[in-house]
Simulated scan of single mutants.
Amino acid sequence: MLIRIISAFALSVFLTHTAVAEMSLKGVSVPDKVTFSGHTMVLNGAGVRSRFFVDAYVAALYLPEPSTDALGILGSGSPLDIRVTIISDLVTGERFAESALDGFVRSTHGDLGPIREQVDTMIKTFRSALKKGDTFDLVYNPDTGTEIYRNGELQVTVDGLEFRSAMAGIWLSDDPVQSSLRDDMLGL
Rank of each mutant, 00 (worst) to 15 (best):
M1H: 15
L2I: 12
I6N: 00
S7C: 07
A8H: 03
T16F: 15
T18H: 10
V28A: 02
V28Q: 02
V28N: 02
S29Q: 05
T35L: 12
T35E: 14
F36V: 09
S37P: 05
T40I: 07
V42G: 09
V42C: 10
N44F: 02
A46R: 03
G47E: 07
S50M: 11
V54M: 03
V58A: 01
A60Y: 02
L61P: 03
Y62G: 09
P66L: 14
S67Y: 04
T68V: 12
T68R: 15
D69T: 08
G72N: 10
P79E: 00
R83P: 10
T85V: 15
I86T: 12
L90K: 06
V91E: 11
T92K: 11
T92S: 13
T92Q: 09
R95V: 08
F96P: 07
L101S: 09
D102Q: 13
G103S: 07
G103W: 15
G103H: 10
H109T: 04
D111V: 13
L112K: 08
R116K: 15
V119F: 06
T121M: 11
T125G: 11
R127D: 04
A129W: 05
K131F: 05
T135M: 12
T135S: 14
D143M: 04
T146H: 02
G152Y: 02
G152D: 07
Q155H: 00
Q155A: 00
V158Y: 07
D159H: 10
G160Y: 11
S165T: 05
A168V: 01
I170C: 02
I170S: 00
S173W: 10
P176H: 04
V177A: 08
V177F: 14
L181W: 09
R182D: 00
R182A: 04
L188K: 10
